[in-house]
Design a protein around this nucleic acid. Structure first.
Lengths: 173, 173, 173, 173
DNA sequence: TATGAATGAGACTTCATTCAT
DNA sequence: AATGAATGAAGTCTCATTCAT
């Protein structure tokens, strides 16, 4: 991966995340990256290929974000870690997450399978704690996670911790 | 509003919602609506104007969806009605909501003010019920609402009622 | 067929014939036709579509050029008319024929079926005249036709009639 | 001439002959030859230079093909040898001839002077045999040659010898 | 009101060529 | 000799928009 390849990826990520994939022209990406437009195609074949290269990085990022969760020792810690996930999005990853969240709404790109491991771990934790309907409870948490992440990404000054506290209380954490 | 104007709006809504605003060309809209491309511009001035016309309808739809909530007599009913909101999205409005949700991620279009009345009513209800931090509690519900609506819109077969039940229990509803 | 469509076809024919299909850019065609480049694609979908539109005209031209031959009453007249074919290419059709001949060498476009009727008529005529191997004789004439047409098209000042005379003598015409 | 130079020439010949000079990119040539694109330019300066290198080989090939003819002792043998020329194209030279024939139709490249010696020898032979118009007779043979070669090159399974026989009879060979 | 021809800017992509290594 | 990153111009094609009818 040459330095210019890296610059292209960074510029594309920023622009795709901020203005949308379709609304961002490859010429804008090239200008922002300080390279010739042709270079984008030499390295990534097509605009779509550029997006895929970014999404591959995103997948790796997701994997790492979830890695910490699975290591939790008891169900309560598992749930707590998962609830805190939206608060652990580092600034460096804001744009990546924004892009992933925005792309959900574009029919062709959507694939939720990366979230399956978390879903399973969560159901298991609720089951251990004796919840009546662990699957429903897990789904509920997922909805909160999605809403919380959305809020963090759209209003970057971020969410007050009070919300998280209120939620933890509901699960006696 | 002539019949052709209506047809344009419907086609545009469907395409904007399914493929994205930027990714939908006016020519595609014209073809889908069965009208000439010129007619779009006679009626709506520009592609942006066409979007605004749709968003005006969306605003009215939102207003109506929220109207029922404010009429609730006691705080518990208020909260219950609000929690149930995502389940009341009628099929006829799916695409409109999809479009609104997708546009959130496009910097220029985002305006949350239509949700302010609900936020206030919700905070008031939690205050009446003696919650320690009504604002945080309201924010929490908002996150759930956003996540639930997202789930309904992206996986149309819809959410099981069990999730809603699990949530209601948490608020003793 | 609007006037500009016609102008595009004429300009494209001239340029494709003189400089080659691949070597002619749609921008050159547009400039030569005095229209915007986009118009080419509105009317003909693609550069390839533009070529096909021209080839459809070429096919019609070929059909007409051959129409006169089939009406001949006796075998000798048939053969004479066919031998004279290269000399009947009107100036107005030079470019069309040049294009057709040039495209023969581009793998994808080649289709000889338009010549089949002539081949059959010719074989029949030679058979009637009692030639030992009418098929071979017809093939021979075809080679001459191809060579003669090539000469006419590549050295426009044209071929001396003496060549044709020498040939006619060989068939006692 | 290094091995890679050779590989470039071979790949270029094949592609230029099959797809056309203008339609073949230097990148395609490099890939087909299994070398880097830069190497083409180090060895041949430009795409045009690469073509010229091939045409130089073609010229040598033509010279050799014609060499045998001029050595013929009597006029009849001369004519016979010339008529047989299209049948002597070796498979190894098909692509070279195809390229030469295809380039005839690209205005800039065409130069017939290599055929002049044959033309003269042929006229001389017909004059010796007492033909009324030796020049016209030679031209006629040239047209046949061109048509026959074209047929051989475009329909590789090749021409039946019967055609050649029919022709030889016309010249009492 | 409605059409569809027409445009010019800009989209994505490919090209021949150069250059540092 | 050889590579492959890099470029700028040019390629085909699409876009939003205008206008005569």
């Amino acid at each position: 991966m040459t330095e210019k390849q890296q610059r292209i990826l960074e510029a594309a990520l920023r622009l795709f995340a901020q203005e949308g994939y379709a609304a961002t022209s490859t010429s804008k990406v090239a200008k922002a990256a300080g390279v010739s437009e042709g270079l984008i195609f030499r390295h990534f074949q097509s605009k779509e290929g550029l997006l895929q290269a970014i999404l591959t990085q995103a997948h790796e990022m997701t994997r790492q974000a979830f890695a910490g969760v699975v290591l939790a020792s008891d169900p309560k810690e598992t749930i707590r870690k998962i609830l805190e996930l939206p608060y652990t999005i580092s600034e460096a990853h804001y744009e990546m997450w924004r892009l992933v969240y925005a792309l959900k709404w574009q029919t062709k790109q959507y694939d939720t399978s990366s979230y399956d491991p978390i879903r399973l771990v969560l159901q298991h934790a609720f089951a251990e704690l004796g919840y009546a309907d662990p699957a429903a409870e897990a789904e509920l948490v997922f909805m909160y996670l999605d809403g919380a992440a959305t809020a963090m990404l759209l209003h970057p000054p971020a969410q007050p911790a009070a919300v998280l506290e209120a939620l933890k209380k509901k699960y006696n954490l």
